[in-house]
Design a protein around this nucleic acid. Structure first.
Length: 489
RNA sequence: GCCUCGAUGGUGUAGCUCGGCCAAUCAUUGCGGACUCUCACUCCGCAGACCCGGGUUCAAAUCCCGGUCGAGGCACCA
């Protein structure tokens, strides 16, 4: 995809931002959003600011700051500057006072519902009409000192109560909250709203271009531009794009939270989720996200990303560096009637020879996958891949057959099957789509057990391998049996 | 209800500003084939789309009007 050409973008002068609110774990929507901004900065050789929008003390938690830093650096995105919006409280207060002095803001003590009614009717409230500048300054100082309690007063912009854009109808600039802030403690009583904080932080960090999803809306853009204007700040260029949905996965933080709390999923890092932790643990590679952005583009219509796209990109990254092993699902025992002890070395990758080889010993028993059961007919000749041919002699029962070695010449057009001779138990968790037709898919987590080759037990936790004709998996845990998670086919 | 924005194959996207080179791009997906001691990777081929109706024009995916559907916003959240 070609990134859009930005208005007023000069190479080397562009500044973009990653503006997370540290109130939750990062999820794919934010990750893609970071990538978009990163890519824009790359295109124009610009600067990237990580700005924590932490001005709502009720929502933020200290642990979440690090989560975002981690996700960004994991994706190999650059950060040139990091700021905390909550470190600039005095600036918001100063700017607010400036606004009051210019008659652009007033302290309002209306009840919430009452004001909302006025807003619907397009009428100004008495506080706007009656309070003189001097009085407003007075009132605001009292607010800062903590002389009002929560809900008793707010500072509002003197906007336009009749504007079509309801965001412009005397919006709140600062409000009271006595909730202790995760970083700033209980030092402050009044906190800026996003629309007030944002333009100021943009100015402080020199942001020139804002890329954000449409949930912030054109109305906000207009409001923020108006606030900038009253503050004598040149507003940045705004650019908006639609939200990203992943088909079959919830992408809204609120929904994910509910699923976690209700126990529908096993936590924020459940493989069926599209949170940073889940994706990372599942085995999706950090480079995938920027690539997704380049492939799906930046548009204003809702973008439904299919898992198959993610898998395709990921597969191409991990394919050349994943060791290959054999794994058999629902194992079927093959007893060889004419066994020959064999020790052999098999390449760990068909063309990447750097990955080396694994040693395998074969004696009188082989295990084949239950999914190949239909091939197990008497007198059928099958190729044991990289080994020799066998001929099925007799079925003992559903799980056991007798066979004999039938030469090692590679015969044309016979099935080539993966096999296991020195079995180790493996349990694989396979995630499917959490939602099917908008309903929770109860069977979205499948547990598959089977036998893997012995050398799989030498793998390190976290290693990604290809189990031939099964899929890519990642080593998760090793104790009595090896636990892996299925990444994709 | 009000205010924005959007609509191209199953999915995503290019093209729309400046109508003709568009019997519509690329990717993903599906199918077939080649390669390979994997159903992976790579390569080749095939399949599948301009929301609807009207208008302007020699000519419309592209411009205009009217619908329909979808998304987002309308907080003392961000």
């Amino acid at each position: 995809m070609v990134l859009p050409d930005l208005p007023n973008a000069v190479e080397g002068k562009v500044v973009v931002r990653y503006p997370p609110e540290p109130s939750k774990h990062p999820h794919i929507g934010q990750m893609l959003s970071f990538c978009i901004n990163h890519l824009i900065a790359e295109k124009y050789k610009g600067r990237r600011v990580l700005r924590f929008d932490d001005t709502n003390p009720e929502r933020i938690k200290e642990e979440f700051y690090e989560g975002f830093r981690e996700a960004i650096s994991w994706m190999e995105l650059k950060i040139d500057q990091e700021v905390l919006a909550s470190n600039y409280m005095d600036t918001y207060y100063e700017k607010a006072e400036g606004l009051i002095k210019n008659g652009d803001a007033f302290v309002c003590s209306c009840e919430r519902e009452a004001f909302s009614k006025l807003r619907a009717e397009g009428k100004s409230c008495q506080c706007n009409l009656n309070n003189a500048t001097e009085k407003n300054i007075d009132l605001f100082e009292q607010m800062m000192k903590g002389e009002f309690s929560v809900g008793e007063a707010v500072l509002r912009l003197r906007g336009d109560m009749q504007s079509d854009n309801s965001a412009l109808r005397d919006p709140v600039l600062l409000r009271i909250s006595e909730f202790p802030h995760a970083i700033q403690g209980d030092k402050y009583h009044i906190w800026p709203m996003y629309d007030f904080e944002s333009p100021i932080m943009e100015e402080i960090t020199g942001v020139t271009h804002i890329f954000r999803s449409i949930e912030f809306g054109k109305m906000r853009e207009e409001l923020q531009s108006l606030i900038s204007k009253k503050l004598n700040i040149i507003p940045p260029e705004f650019y908006e794009y639609s939200r990203f949905n992943i088909i079959g996965a919830p992408t809204q933080g609120r929904v994910i939270r509910e699923l976690v709390e209700e126990g529908v999923v096993n936590g924020w890092d459940d493989y069926r989720l599209v949170t940073y932790q889940a994706l990372k643990n599942r085995g999706i590679q950090p480079q995938v996200f920027s690539e997704i952005v380049e492939r799906v583009g930046i548009t204003k219509s809702t973008t439904n990303i299919d898992w198959s796209l993610i898998f395709s990109i990921n597969r191409k990254i991990i394919e050349p560096r994943s060791k290959h092993y054999f794994f058999v699902d629902e194992p079927i025992e093959i007893v060889l009637l004419n066994p020959e002890p064999v020790e052999l070395e098999i390449s760990l990758h068909p063309y990447n020879k750097d990955l080396g080889k694994r040693k395998v010993k074969v004696n009188e028993t082989l295990y084949l996958s239950g999914t190949d059961k239909k091939l197990l007919k008497e007198n059928e000749i099958l190729r044991m891949k990289d080994l020799y041919n066998i001929k099925i002699v007799k079925k003992i029962n559903e799980k056991k057959y007798e066979a004999e070695i039938f030469g090692d010449e590679l015969l044309p057009k016979i099935p080539r099957l993966q096999w296991v001779s020195e079995p180790v138990k493996i349990e694989i968790v396979k995630p499917e789509m959490l939602y099917l037709n908008n309903r929770i898919n109860k069977d979205s987590l499948e547990y598959i057990t089977g036998f893997g080759e012995k050398s799989i037990s030498n793998l390190k936790i976290g290693e990604i391998v290809q189990l031939e004709r099964f899929g890519y998996t990642k080593v998760n845990k090793k104790n009595d049996k090896i636990k892996m998670n299925y990444i994709h086919g």
